[in-house]
Design a protein around this nucleic acid. Structure first.
Lengths: 71, 71
DNA sequence: ACCACACCCGAAGTCTAGCTTCGTTAAAGC
DNA sequence: GCTTTAACGAAGCTAGACTTCGGGTGTGGT
């Protein structure tokens, strides 16, 4: 429950750093914009396959998405 | 596909570092021993809720489970 | 004032894959 | 030879990831 929210905030931070919209990220990942919205708000986490796609779309090392200290 | 295997190996490494068996980890996480076995072999990744429980069970920061460089 | 954009937020339904329970096999240690 | 640990397959269940609908909010541009 805690982790989803922390992860969601991290996705949003890295997405904004890339200056792309939720819709653009959704297209790159291959999911709906609502799914990205839900992930960023911590409603639910991504599947492991989509986690990998998010990492590729944001072009960051995996551990950066779980590095909550350097927010 | 790539990520599940890397993640699985990392779980095994950190579990062995704690000197606990798959069965003990399974009990702490609250899943079956086969599920832990499948995760470590990269058959499937954990759900986000169980990912959080794995982090707690191994007592490591989340990013350490995705830090594949320091294997 | 109006429109477009970006996003939040439900509700309700679909469906994948995470998880389970069976069973078998095999290596390592004592 | 017994026990422990873990790999591995198959088959079924189910939670939750994901979807589509619809409505709402705030901002910036013209």
């Amino acid at each position: 429950m805690q982790l989803k929210k922390q992860f969601g905030r991290r996705v949003q931070q890295l997405r904004l750093a890339k200056k792309i919209t939720q819709e653009e990220l959704a297209e790159h990942v291959g999911v709906s914009i609502e799914s990205i919205s839900n992930i960023e708000r911590g409603i639910h986490g991504p599947s492991f396959d989509n986690l990998e796609k998010i990492i590729l779309a944001l072009n960051v090392p995996a551990k950066m998405l779980f590095d909550f200290d350097e927010e």
